[in-house]
C-alpha cells in the first residue's frame, strides 16, 4: 500500500463534499498514478463531476484530505490546480460563447511576449497553436476568430479537450469528453488519452460508455450514490463485468420482468419486452471485440461524422 501511495500524483483520503444538506460525495479514497488511466464510472448523479471538480480546485473538500505528490494540499481555485499541471475538461466545457476560439483556448494561460509593462498577449502564436492543436484533433478550424458559441457541440467539446491536453502537463481530467463527439473524434480522444498516458500523464477519464472506458482504462473506480462502490484493476475485470456493473445488470433484468407484468396481454408490447430481454442478455454476453463495438455505439449516439 505504501509503495503505491508514494508513486501517486493525486490521492484522496476519505474525501467528502457537501452542498448544504446534500451529500454529493462521501469518504472517497482513491489514487491517481502517473502513466495510468483511471476511469471514473457511475450513474447520473453518482458524484463523478463533484469529485473531479474537487480534484481540479473548483470546490474545496468539506472533509478529508487531498494529496498531491504525497503532500496534503489545499487548492483555492482552478488556477492553483493548473499551476500544478492539473488540467480539466469540465462537463459543461467552461467556454465563453462570445469569445473567439483562440481566445478561449488560451483563456487563463495566455502566452505572452515583451517585457515589463509592454508584456502582451502573443496573439499570432496563440492563433497558430489553436489551429495546430485543433487540426491534430481532426478538426479543421475555418477561422480562429469564430466565436465559440457558434461552433457545433462536438467542435466546442474538441476545443475544450485540445486545450486541456495542451495544458495538462501532469494530470488530465476529462469529464465525459466523448459525449457529443462523432465516431472519428471520439476515436481521436481515446488515442489522445493513450498517448498522454504513454507520456507519463495521469489521466482521469469519466464516461458512461464502457466501450470507450475499457480499452483505454487501467483502473476503474465505480461510484454509486456518492460513494466508492468498486475499485478494480483492469486485470481483475472483464468487459462483460464492467458493462454489467455500469448498466446495473440485475436491475435491468428486474426492469424487463416488471415491464412484462405491465404488458399484460398487449401483444405488441409483449413482443417489445421480449426484444428488450434479449438485449439484456446480449449485454451480459458481449463479445470483446472492442474496436467494432466502439463504432456501433457511437453511431447510436446519433452524430454521424461531418
Amino acid at each position: 500500500m505504501s509503495a503505491q501511495t508514494d508513486e501517486a500524483v493525486l490521492e484522496t483520503r476519505r474525501l467528502s463534499k457537501y452542498f448544504g444538506s446534500v451529500i454529493a460525495i462521501k469518504d472517497i479514497s482513491m489514487l491517481v498514478r502517473p502513466g495510468t488511466v483511471t476511469c471514473l464510472l457511475g450513474d447520473n448523479g453518482a458524484g463523478k463531476s463533484t469529485l473531479i471538480k474537487t480534484l481540479s480546485g473548483v470546490y474545496e473538500p468539506s472533509e478529508g484530505d487531498y494529496l498531491c505528490d504525497g503532500e496534503v494540499i489545499h487548492l483555492h481555485s482552478p488556477r492553483d490546480a493548473l499551476a500544478r499541471g492539473i488540467a480539466t475538461v469540465y462537463q459543461d466545457l467552461a467556454m465563453i460563447p462570445l469569445l473567439s476560439i483562440w481566445r478561449n483556448f488560451f483563456l487563463g494561460s495566455e502566452p505572452t511576449k515583451g517585457w515589463g509593462p509592454f508584456r502582451r498577449f502573443d496573439v499570432k502564436k496563440a492563433k497558430e497553436i489553436t489551429r495546430d492543436e485543433m487540426g491534430k484533433m481532426g478538426i479543421d478550424v475555418r477561422d480562429p476568430e469564430q466565436p465559440v458559441g457558434t461552433l457545433s457541440g462536438g467542435e466546442r467539446q474538441s476545443v475544450a479537450i485540445a486545450r486541456a491536453v495542451y495544458f495538462g502537463a501532469r494530470v488530465l481530467i476529462l469529464d465525459e469528453p466523448t459525449a457529443a463527439l462523432g465516431v472519428k473524434q471520439a476515436g481521436v480522444v481515446l488515442r489522445y488519452i493513450v498517448r498522454a498516458k504513454q507520456r507519463g500523464v495521469a489521466v482521469v477519464f469519466i464516461t458512461h460508455n464502457p466501450h470507450h472506458a475499457y480499452p483505454v482504462g487501467d483502473h476503474f473506480v465505480i461510484l454509486r450514490r456518492g460513494q466508492v462502490y468498486g475499485d478494480f484493476a483492469k486485470a481483475d475485470l472483464g468487459l462483460e463485468q464492467l458493462v454489467q456493473m455500469m448498466a446495473g445488470g440485475a436491475e435491468l433484468e428486474n426492469l424487463a420482468h416488471e415491464l412484462q407484468r405491465e404488458a399484460g396481454d398487449d401483444a405488441e408490447l409483449r413482443e417489445a419486452v421480449a426484444v428488450l430481454e434479449q438485449e439484456v442478455k446480449a449485454v451480459a454476453a458481449e463479445p470483446v471485440v472492442v474496436e467494432r463495438r466502439a463504432d456501433v455505439v457511437s453511431d447510436e449516439e446519433g452524430r454521424p461524422e461531418g
Binding site: 482552478p78 459543461d92 467552461a94 467556454m95 462570445l98 487563463g108 494561460s109 486545450r163
Partner: peptide
Amino acid sequence: GTGGAVDAARNVG
C-alpha cells in the same frame, strides 16, 4: 472571459 461567463472563466484559471 470574466464578463462572458464568470464560472467558466474561473474554472479555466
